[in-house]
Design a protein around this nucleic acid. Sequence first.
DNA 1: GTAGGGTTAG
Length: 642
Amino acid sequence: MKAVSGKIKHIRTSPSSLSWSYSLAPLASRTNPRNPPSSTLLDEFINFCYRRDLPRAMKAMAAMERHGIYADAITYSELIKCCLARNAVEQGKLVHKHVFSNGYQPKTFLFNILIAMFVKFNLLEQAQALFDQMPERNVVSWTTIISAYVNAKLSDRALEFFVLMLRGGVLPNMYTFSSVLRACNGLVNLRQLHCGIIKVGLESDVFVRSALIDVYSKLDELKDAICVFNEMETKDLVVWNSIIGGLAQNSDGDEALNQFKRMKRAGFTADQATLTSVLRACTGLALLEVGRQVHVHVLKFDVDLILNNALLDMYCKSGSLEDAKSVFERMVYRDVISWSTMIAGLAQNGFSREALKFFDLMKASGMKPNYITILGVLFACSHAGLVDDGWYYFRSMKKLYGIDPGREHYGCIIDLLGRAGKLDEAVKLVQEMECEPDAVTWRTLLGACRVHRNVDLAIYAAKQVLKLDPGDAGTYVLLSNIYANSERWEDVSEIRRAMRDKGIKKAPGSSWIEVNKQIHAFILGDTAHPKINEINRRLNQLIHKLMGMGYVPDTNFVLQDLEGEQRDDSLRYHSEKLAIVFGLISLSTGSAIRIRKNLRICGDCHTFAKLVAKMDCRLIVIRDPIRYHHFQNGVCSCGDFW
DNA sequence: GTAGGGTTAG
């Protein structure tokens, strides 16, 4: 009723319902030129429209049509608002038919309203047909149709209409630009649009700016996004959310959190979108404690599905599955993303059986899995070595769920076969894949060769990786180590030369640990951390103690090592060992040590972590780029299979 | 009558 009170406040002062038609008399002047001079039917119709009485208005409309009586565009727009509010699609279509009955041609305004109605009802074809039928189109007509195509993710079509609009000499406004910006599919047309915006003097509009920030960051042009953001004198919440979201989605979690602090200092209160992005930043950095703080604020928006999904993911990716499960259980609504997040989260953390149990529960609840759900399921199978189950899900996904296996699904099965030592079958699958294998596919096979020490196949797979991804430093190092191990020194120097010529350097192994909501970073053989001397002293003592318990540092890890060429002593100072020791020094007795790494963990650090977890009776969680290791009581959740 | 921000994999 909100809209009604705005429109007819002046005629609702009388409490008597009988006075309605009398009071509405001035509105009858909103008559269509086709109408007879005065009409009770029309008065009634107008009355029902403004009272949002859809059934009676529809009846009155039918009666009017029989008598050839029509209302004005404002009245029809009220009726359409009512149809939209009730999602009354059929009634909306009847209004459209009524307006055009007896060959009447409405003005642009009413055309626009009808087009907008069809768009909101998701009837794009009808909207387009009406648009085509218009004798004259203004900026609103064009913007409505462009924005409809943008929302339908038909960017090319949206851009085509934008060009047609310009050719037709219609000047775009801020509504048009905020829509069409979202259709940008490349930097070139984004820059052109940005110039156009400046030319027509719309660059200071907040809607246009937030769209610009969003599109620049989606195209990975963060510098430009930040530039647009910094130039703004007045920012609103959405603009802040755009920049925080852009940073969080581009793996710049640190900066996203910094901007979030600035936003709060500027006096803004976070809403659902802000918190979702902040959680995503925490997820990327595995900041469990900061994430927990955010959780407190999330409670205000209890039923927000997207926000709760982001919370779930944060807990999963911080290795805290118990928290994830309790959030999941408390969620009022769950969608396919909630389920997929849990399944993938459990699988990545090494709880494959539980992941598959969740998949069964999901199906039992009637939820239909999607492409990503199946990836999580296959990931669970591959990381638990469940060959038969993996094949079953892979072979039945098309039939049971109508999902065609993609490259990533093939990758999971190649991984599964490779880990299980079935390298021949894995190679066969690569050859039979319905899609072209990419660098990731070959790297998966290479990983399996590393585990099973198949030198010839490893060399072949590494060469395929380098053909498709010539800048992959890890593969160069691995290949060089394989050659070194086979004493193929000429090949070794060729690889080194290639790396030198191409300027390829391997990123040093780094680990991060959160202590008191602060992130501490360690790199291989670190000397920069303020407590490094104490860490090294404790590390040496610890290694000595562990060796007494039977620990033998594994220095022969040529086919295993992903940290690079360092051997012997440097093995001692792998970044995760430094981070573990720092955790032992800094965290209270018994509390979990959680570490995030940029490279995959090596065999020696894996053994080390198992022993430390046992000796110190605490949980150690190490997250690498692919999966998670939960070390407890001398064993790892990955079952030494990674 | 037409506009901007948030979730699962890789």
